[in-house]
Every structure is written in structure tokens, then in C-alpha cells.
Amino acid sequence: MAKPADLRRIALSLEGTTEAPHFDRAAFKVKRIFVTLAADGRTANFKFTPDEQEFKCLLAPRAFQPVAGGWGRQGWTTATLSELSVADLRQALEMAWRHAVPKSPKR
């Protein structure tokens, strides 16, 4: 069972990641936000692609659900931390982090 401290530790270990407040949540970002942690520490919102979101929600429907409305259609996905192993949490964080890392300039 993953805990908020696991999310914070793993997210901040990913290259270039910083933590900052985002409304009532803690946001973790590189160039852009890739995950936010709820103030109560029970859930986190991940930025996946819509295809990644669909896969996660099909694979683990008790752990992952699309965020309601337009944000969810863009791939934002709520995860219930208590439904994730630490390994599952790490994989989800790394997946979301890859979308936030600045792209290398084309040569």
C-alpha cells in the first residue's frame, strides 16, 4: 500500500522535479505539473495520455479513475494511493514524469 510519503520521495527523486503548492494540493513538476497530491494524502492526480489513462483504468479500476470532465478527457487520472503498491506508484510517476520533461531541441 503506497503512502503520501512514498509519492513525495519518489516524485522528488525524478530528475528536475520540484514541489510547490497548487490550490489545496501539492504539485510536482518539471517544466509542467505531472502529478498532484491531495491535502488528505489519500489520492493523487496523474497526467497521462488518454491512451495511458484508459490502460491504467482497465488494468486497475479500483486504483485509477479518470478525473471528471474536461481534465479527465485530457488524460488526468485520479489514483487512490491505498490501492497501489509502491512499485505501481513508481511506475505511474515515471510515466507521468516523462510527459513533463522538456523535449530535446531538434537538430
Rank of each mutant, 00 (worst) to 15 (best):
A79G: 12
W71S: 08
K56V: 07
E52C: 09
Q65D: 03
D51H: 13
F55Y: 11
V86K: 08
R42D: 09
T80K: 07
V67W: 00
L58M: 07
L81Y: 10
E83I: 04
R42K: 15
P50L: 11
A87Q: 14
Q53V: 02
R42S: 11
R90S: 12
T80E: 04
R90V: 04
T77C: 06
M95P: 00
Q65M: 12
K47M: 06
P61S: 12
P50M: 10
P50R: 08
Q53W: 03
F48N: 01
F64Q: 08
Q74F: 01
G72E: 05
G69H: 04
T77V: 00
S82Y: 05
F55L: 15
V67N: 00
G69Y: 04
T49F: 10
L89D: 08
E83Q: 15
A92M: 04
D88F: 00
A60N: 15
L84R: 02
V67F: 01
C57R: 14
G72H: 02
S85D: 06
D51V: 13
W71I: 07
G72P: 00
V67M: 05
G70I: 02
F46V: 13
G75E: 04
L58I: 03
T77F: 00
F46W: 13
E94V: 13
L59R: 07
K47L: 11
R62D: 14
Q65W: 01
T43S: 15
V67Y: 00
W76M: 08
V86P: 05
A68D: 14
M95W: 07
Q53S: 15
N45F: 07
L84F: 10
L58H: 11
L59Q: 09
T49H: 08
E52K: 11
L59V: 00
T49Q: 13
G72Q: 07
V67H: 00
K47R: 15
A92P: 12
C57Y: 07
Q53F: 02
N45M: 14
E52D: 13
D88M: 12
F48D: 02
D51F: 03
S85R: 05
A92I: 12
P50D: 06
E54G: 03
F48H: 07
E52R: 13
A63R: 04
G69P: 03
G69F: 03
R62F: 06
K56I: 02
L93G: 01
P50S: 11
E94N: 12
A63E: 03
P50A: 13
Q53M: 07
K47T: 06
M95S: 09
M95A: 09
Q74D: 00
L59M: 01
K47N: 03
A63I: 10
Q53P: 06
V86Q: 08
R62M: 10
S85C: 06
F48A: 01
